[in-house]
Amino acid sequence: MSAHDDLHQTHTQPRTDLPPRQGAALDQVLQVASSLQSAMNSVIEGKPAAVRTVVTALLAEGHVLIEDVPGVGKTMLAKTLARCIDASVRRVQFTPDLLPSDITGVSVYNQDVRDFEFRAGAIFANVVVGDEINRASPKTQSALLESMEEAQVTVDGTTYSLPRPFMVLATQNPIEMEGTYPLPEAQRDRFMARISMGYPSARSEVDMLDQHGGRSPLEDLRPVTDAATVTQMIEAVRTVHTSQALKQYVVDVTQATRTSSALRLGASPRASLHLLRAARAHAALAGRDHVLPDDVQSVTIPVLAHRLMLTGESQLAHRSAADVLTDLLQRVRVPAPTR
């Protein structure tokens, strides 16, 4: 892969001809995001790809579903991100008896002012960590997901906007299915990306034992940025250029999932939108002011895999959605500008 790296290095003066303000904003994105990543990497050993995806989703205003077996650091990842940003953080432990109002908030009667008063729920925070989301009842899940989608909460006819930036990091355990309410496919679509942590390598695990043996490294973690900066960064990411050919490519990829014979359900138009936004953030993280097909390809699997439903045959053949997507990416032609 050295050739690949070299090719990247030859392209180090990307923004000389940009408006200075956009250039400065993107420089800030690059700088802050890399310090954010390095801070997170210091806690989450050996999972730079997962960290990168989380930061990408943060910059793309997306929510992340972390799905894996217990004890691999799902919650740790979510908490690390929350800790690194100087912003309001709420953590909700989902249980079967959790009520929707616990999430959204509730109007209570205030004796002093003789009126109903809104008590904000757990969702009113910049970063919301939803632990074991599949343990809550479908009704509660729906409440969370609706507010995720709209970035606002309506209680008793009054609409309350959620703070910016707003990001939900939900974790889910695919193994212990007893007494759980797995997220339906339609609900999963609301998450921009899904991450499977996977077990750390032996070496990373040893390092982790070293560091976490004494006390939690989370306690040493200092915030590297704040909510306002993140909002600025999100704004800057929105300015990243996407050419017509690239939009065509994004659509080609999602359409390929719809026509693939290995898939029962393809990606939705919302998936196309998420894919484009994630690619934009990915390009900004690489310090570029325009999106390349390579950006799209790098984020395709985390963005699309959890939305797809395999056919019975593919499942019998032990193919995963990621395998199918890898095949599709090799087949979809990268559109060149036509004249």
Partner: peptide, 18 residues
């Protein structure tokens, strides 16, 4: 090799940059 890198960078910018 560097020439190839320059070509690729230019093509990328031709296609995808503003």
């Amino acid at each position: 090799k560097q020439a190839m890198g320059r070509i690729v960078a230019t093509v990328e910018r031709a296609r995808y940059a503003p």
